[in-house]
Write a protein that binds this DNA or RNA. Structure first.
Length: 493
RNA sequence: GUCUCCUUCGUCUAGUGGUUAGGACACCGGGUUUUCAUCCCGGCAACACGAGUUCGACUCUCGUAGGAGAUGCCA
């Protein structure tokens, strides 16, 4: 039997790391097995639905270069692949269960349900959830509710005796006593839309899904879904519950841990290849040494049996490291193209890049490449080139074991040497040697001289190599900035 | 509270009865770079605990503890 899996997100928010990891696992599993990967939009929650979320879903998958074999846009014989467009279908199946008396209409108001829950909580009762108030209504009672105009929901009859087991590829058999399963969950809401349980089971069956790979938070509803499959007389698919992605504190990854939406990562300048590589490595590994995987490799090599059971912590620093590695693999031309939007956005470079700007970039890119963790780092690293920075506060000019006076003195001397050297086209290495000589003469570390020079030129203690900085800036601009700094420092003495 | 799942360095992980328990990130040190990075070298650091089973347990079994998830007309 050919593998058919699906990613079935709910467009109620931006695509996040956890969701994308699920998508990736499904996708790689399908590819490695020569099966099909479907995308299904579960937009049954009309309260929380948003167009932006749907759009973000498509954009995210596109950015990651994940294509679905069947789904919205692409289509396929089992579609439509958007649940709101299959509205009638769920009605039909829900009513089918009512006819078989495996489900029933319930007229309880949300207020009553809330009250029931509160009472259970107050009594610390071990019985939880719906009290099955409507499970055996008489015809008269139903007529009365209908007369009041209450729109009913449809609930599944969950057996109170016995137990239900389902098999999970990773966990093995998972068994739950039926009495512990959420009593009579809602299948069809009063607005006529199905809940996750119904829609998911119906669609997975109708679409011929063979393996359900979803997050472990769904384990508790596994038995419930099996009961549903059986109620319909269908064979449940194979389950594989994926370990969850956690934050540093071991809780489910959420905004308070940092960025969680793929859009955030994209905007900060993470490369899709790097994110994909890292994300598939939380909860899965190939062996004890392989770290770098291309999408194509994963499509061949992904093995469902190597997925972990235990939840994994999302390590932002390791992602940074991966991203840096991937940036360094880029050619200068590729990096230039990727970095350009950030420079344009900052106003450093014109949208229609000028010849001059292009030339600056060509020189800048190689210097900057080993220094980028994310593409947006380019902004701070190159600011000094494109705008005249605020003159740095005087403390920044002072290196370790130096004071303001000696730093100023060093800068003045270095300036003289630099100017003389540059004006006479002397080799930069020699200029640097002469600057070192200044340090020696002053009996201070070389750093004590280079730091004020660097800060004068870039207003930063961290920057590109001195030679590159000077070259990129041009000597006139260098002189101007150094003079400006000396002026300021003298005033502070 | 109840139910279910999970447990190897700080983090991601390799490991399926006999290993000096391996790698990567992070961190710390050193070298290259007269800054910062990159790159190279080195170091730190783990089998949650307790009982079994066994000649022998990180590996098997059972408990305990800890963690997580579920308990919605959200998915």
């Amino acid at each position: 039997m050919s593998v058919r899996v699906r990613y079935a997100p709910s467009p109620t928010g931006l695509q996040h790391i956890g969701g994308v990891r699920t998508a990736l696992f499904n996708y790689f599993f399908a590819k490695a097995q020569g099966g099909k990967f479907l995308l299904r939009v579960e937009d049954t929650d009309r309260e929380r639905y948003s167009d932006e979320s749907l759009d973000d879903l498509y954009q995210t998958l596109k950015w990651l270069n994940i294509e679905w074999d069947e789904g919205p846009v692409v289509g396929g014989e089992y579609g439509p692949y958007i649940q709101s467009e299959r509205f009638d279908l769920y009605q039909k199946y829900a009513k089918m269960l009512v006819e078989k008396d495996m489900a029933y209409y319930c007229y309880c108001t949300p207020e009553r349900l809330e009250k029931v829950r509160e009472e259970q909580k107050a009594k610390k009762s071990s019985t939880q959830g719906y009290d099955r108030h409507c499970s055996h209504l008489t015809k008269e009672e139903v007529a009365e509710y209908e007369k009041q105009g209450i729109k009913p929901v449809i609930r599944l009859r969950v057996p109170t005796e016995g137990k239900t087991t389902f098999h999970d590829v990773l966990m093995g058999d998972i068994t739950r006593k039926n009495k512990d399963i959420s009593p009579d969950p809602i299948l069809l809401k009063s607005d006529g839309f199905p809940t996750y349980h119904l829609a998911n089971v119906v669609d997975d069956h109708l679409m011929g899904i063979t393996h359900i790979m979803r997050a472990q938070e769904w384990i508790p509803s596994g038995p419930l879904h099996v009961i549903l499959y059986k109620a319909f007389g269908w064979e449940p698919p194979i389950y594989c519950h994926l370990p969850m992605v956690m934050g540093k504190d071991g809780q489910k990854l959420s905004k308070r841990h940092g960025s969680t939406s793929v859009r955030d990562f994209r905007e900060k300048g993470y490369l899709p290849e790097a994110l994909m590589n890292y994300v598939t490595l939380v909860g899965w590994s190939f062996d004890d040494k392989s770290e770098f995987f291309t999408k194509e490799e994963l499509e061949k090599v992904f093995d469902i049996n190597k997925i972990h059971k235990a939840p994994g912590v999302f390590d932002y620093k390791k992602l940074d490291w991966f991203n840096g590695q991937y940036i360094r693999k880029l050619s200068d031309q590729e990096l230039k193209e990727k970095v350009l939007p950030y420079l344009v956005k900052e106003g450093f470079v014109d949208k229609e890049i000028t010849k001059e700007q292009d030339k600056i970039l060509n020189d800048l890119i190689p210097c900057v490449k080993p220094r980028l963790k994310v593409l947006s780092d380019i902004v701070d690293l190159s600011r000094f080139l494109f705008v005249e920075p605020e003159i740095a506060p005087k403390e920044m000019f002072v290196a370790k074991k130096m004071d303001l006076k000696s730093s100023t003195e060093a800068l003045i001397k270095a300036y003289a040497v630099l100017k003389e050297g540059l004006d006479n086209n002397i080799d930069f290495e020699e200029i640097e040697n002469s600057i070192s000589d200044i340090a020696n003469a002053m009996e201070v570390k070389v750093n004590g001289v280079f730091t004020p020079l660097r800060v004068a030129l870039t207003s930063s203690t961290v920057s590109l190599p001195m030679q590159d900085t000077v070259n990129l800036l041009g000597k006139e601009e260098c002189y101007k900035r150094i003079e400006r700094a000396i002026e300021m420092l003298k005033g502070e003495l």
